[in-house]
Simulated scan of single mutants.
Amino acid sequence: MSAGSERPLGRVYDAAYAGVPNWDIGRPQRPFVRLVEAGVLDGPILDVGCGTGELALFAARHGYDVLGVDLSELAVTQAREKARWRRVPAHFLVWDALRLSAFADAGLRFGSVLDSAMFHVLGDAERDAFVRELTAILESGGLYCVLGDRRENDRDVYGVSVPELRERFPSDRWELAYSEETAFERRWGATPAVFAVLRRR
Rank of each mutant, 00 (worst) to 15 (best):
F58H: 11
V66C: 13
L98H: 11
A102N: 09
L134H: 10
G53S: 03
A102S: 15
V131E: 07
K82H: 11
D96G: 05
E73W: 07
R99V: 01
F58P: 06
L74N: 03
R127M: 12
R127P: 14
E54K: 02
H62F: 09
A83I: 01
V121I: 15
A106M: 04
V157T: 15
D154W: 08
I137R: 09
G148V: 02
V69S: 12
V88Y: 07
Y144F: 15
Q78R: 13
E133Y: 07
V48P: 13
T135G: 11
E152V: 01
L46P: 13
D115G: 02
V88H: 11
R109G: 03
G148T: 04
E152W: 05
F58R: 04
K82V: 00
E73M: 02
K82Q: 12
V88Q: 09
D96I: 00
D70S: 07
S112M: 05
M118N: 03
L114N: 03
V131Y: 09
D96Y: 08
V157P: 14
D154L: 06
S140P: 15
F119Y: 15
V131L: 06
G49P: 14
I137P: 13
L122D: 02
R86I: 00
G141H: 11
V76I: 14
S116C: 13
E54S: 07
F110T: 01
L74H: 04
R151M: 08
L67C: 07
D149I: 01
D124M: 12
T77M: 08
A79H: 08
I45C: 10
E54Q: 14
R127K: 14
V66Q: 14
D124L: 15
D128I: 00
H62V: 00
A75T: 03
D65G: 05
V94W: 10
V113L: 09
H62P: 07
S116M: 01
A90E: 10
T135C: 10
Y144G: 02
R132G: 05
E73I: 00
L67T: 11
W95F: 15
R150A: 15
R127N: 12
F103V: 02
P89Y: 06
V88I: 13
K82E: 05
L46A: 03
D128A: 10
G53T: 00
L122W: 10
A59W: 14
L114C: 03
V69K: 11
V113Y: 10
E54T: 03
V121E: 13
